[in-house]
């Protein structure tokens, strides 16, 4: 029963296993994001306070959420690699880092564009904005540490350790709007109890969230395949995989 689980630690198996899934994932992501964009940008009613400007939430919130999600993925995958010495864990961590950094950058840029009409400024030294910026620096630190060490295996493990240490920042970002009196608006979707958003606004946002997540998984799989080919370039299965 557990053999399929053990096989997940084998690079050729994972390489072959994730390949066919990518088109399906991309198609699902395209459907969800397509629905979310049309419903969110065209059909959802304008906000009573922010007018049409609130619509950037359909890109901003999912990417901010994914920036934390990707970091957690990176840290957990790194921990799996460190504890059980599984090569796939390090490959996943290495593949997730640039994607997470991109999502963080998108969240920061869309947030700045949203902040301009709402707060009158592109940037404010606010807890949530600052901690998100620190998240970006953490991503940079992890990525450069991995590249800096000459030995690839040691670079992987050092970067994994740093990612685990940096995990303390994730709850700080998530709860920053509750802990500090912040300019950034509080949580409206991800909280216990009833959501404060009407369905016509919420449904596209949830679709975008799911779409972004599936998109993240698809890109992660693609990057993982490339990462595995590069890491195992001396192995026989890579030569066979490239030949076919």
């Amino acid at each position: 029963m557990w053999t399929w689980f053990y096989r997940l630690a084998s690079p050729p198996y994972v390489y072959g296993f994730v390949g066919p899934a990518i088109p399906w994932l991309l198609a699902a992501a395209a459907c969800l994001i397509g629905y979310g964009l049309v419903a969110g940008l065209v059909f959802a009613p304008p906000d009573y306070q922010q007018g049409d400007a609130f619509r950037i939430i359909y890109v901003h919130a999912p990417s901010a959420w994914l920036s934390l999600c990707a970091y957690t993925t990176m840290a957990v995958a790194g921990a799996i690699g460190l504890v059980w010495r599984i090569k796939i864990g390090f490959a996943v961590a290495a593949a997730a880092a640039p994607i997470g950094a991109s999502f963080t950058l998108v969240a920061l840029v869309t947030g700045a564009l949203w902040g301009r009409p709402m707060w009158g400024t592109y940037w404010a030294w606010d807890p949530r904005l600052t901690s998100e910026l620190i998240l970006l620096f953490l991503y940079f630190g992890v990525m450069s540490l991995r590249r800096a060490l000459d030995d690839a295996a040691r670079g992987d493990r050092a970067a994994a350790l740093l990612a685990i240490v940096g995990v303390v920042n994730v709850p700080i970002i998530h709860f920053s709007v509750q802990w500090w009196n912040s300019l950034h608006q509080g949580a409206t979707v991800m909280k216990f109890g009833k959501s404060q958003m009407p369905g016509s606004m919420l449904l596209p946002l949830l679709a975008m969230l799911c779409g972004f997540m599936i998109f993240f998984v698809a890109v992660l799989c693609q990057r993982l395949r490339a990462e595995l080919l590069m890491r195992e370039r001396l192995a026989v299965w890579v030569r066979e995989a490239i030949r076919t």
Binding site: T130, I134, F137, L138, F140, G141, S144, L145, A148, L149, D150, R154, A158, L161, L162, V165, G166, V168, N169, I172
Partner: peptide
């Protein structure tokens, strides 16, 4: 010390050390 231990093998690790430690030290 975490940063120093991670960069101990590097010839020019002091820049990387700052890059690693400063975000953690911001709180």
């Amino acid at each position: 010390a975490i940063g120093a231990a991670l960069t101990v093998g590097l010839r020019r690790g002091s820049m990387l050390l700052s890059l690693i430690v400063l975000p953690l030290a911001s709180p």
